[in-house]
């Protein structure tokens, strides 16, 4: 009798939770793209492995695109440069997910698909998350944008995809936000005070990228820094903005 009561209690608790947590969101996955691969125009094809439908996106270096809606499914992502396939990988786009795909690295003289060093292959074989430099060869990283932050603060994260062994730091005005970030690395998301501020990316004491940014509470700012192809002494930073999870609108 006691056991039956416990089971009834468990079932009642489980079935009542959905009503306590009603969130109106659509079912689609959303993904955006940042291209920092040091190469001519890149062509990314995204193929739905269930129905074969394909989207093709063309992008130049240092560009980003806004979110694209995708049906939740397995997708094959292929990156083509000068008619040669540089990268190919399967990603699963989950329902209600918001993702940023970052492409980074440098092309080698002989272009092969998914070029990897032996150490990188070994790490992958043994279940490593393989976020290492892979000799600065082309790679991509999927970032999660569904951050469940407070709606009363702004948030920032820093992505170093400048193919170099030099560490980068990020300052907001004079306060240090992230220090000595290696390539390739995505920092955790950090809470900041909203408002208009100057941000500086530096290599040691030398500022290599400087920009003004107005931040709003409830928003997440992803600062992606890569090489500046027009000025070897400077770096280029792209700012991506999205709303914190419960403000995300399809």
């Amino acid at each position: 009798m006691r056991r039956n009561n416990l089971i009834i209690l468990l079932i009642a608790l489980v079935t009542s939770f959905p009503f306590m947590n009603a969130q109106a969101q659509d079912h689609y996955a959303h993904f955006r793209l940042v291209n920092f691969l040091e190469a001519p125009t890149a062509e990314l094809s995204v193929t739905n492995l269930e129905n074969g439908q394909q989207k093709v996106i063309k992008m130049d270096y240092g560009e980003s695109i806004n979110y694209i809606k995708l049906t939740p499914q397995h997708y094959r992502f292929s990156l083509i440069i000068k008619n040669k396939k540089v990268l190919e990988k399967e990603f699963v786009m989950g329902a209600k997910g918001f993702y940023t795909l970052v492409i980074a690295g440098m092309l080698s003289d002989k272009i092969e698909t998914n070029q990897q060093t032996t150490l990188f292959k070994l790490k992958k074989l043994l279940g490593g998350e393989t976020k290492d430099d892979n000799n600065f060869l082309p790679q991509w990283y999927m970032l999660r944008d569904n951050y469940d932050g407070s709606t009363s603060a702004a948030y920032v994260r820093f992505v170093n995809i400048n193919p170099s062994s030099t560490l980068l730091s990020l300052k907001k005005e004079e306060s240090k936000l992230f220090e000595e970030i290696p390539y390739p690395h995505v920092t955790d998301i950090k809470k900041i005070k909203e408002g208009n501020h100057t941000y500086r990316v530096s290599k040691g004491d030398i500022t290599v990228s400087e920009f003004k940014l107005t931040t709003t509470a409830g928003h997440i700012y992803t600062l992606v820094t890569g090489a500046n192809l027009n000025n070897a002494k400077q770096l280029e930073t792209i700012i991506l903005e999205n709303k914190a999870k419960y403000l995300l609108t399809p």
């Binding site: 489980v14 996955a29 939740p72 499914q73 397995h74 990988k89 399967e90 990603f91 699963v92 786009m93 989950g94 329902a95 997910g97 993702y99 279940g127 999927m142 999660r144």
Partner: peptide
């Protein structure tokens, strides 16, 4: 388990 969606087991990542 009552919300079963096998895609979630790999969502945002590469299947292994």
């Amino acid at each position: 388990l009552t919300q079963w969606d096998s895609l979630q087991l790999m969502a945002g990542a590469e299947p292994k």
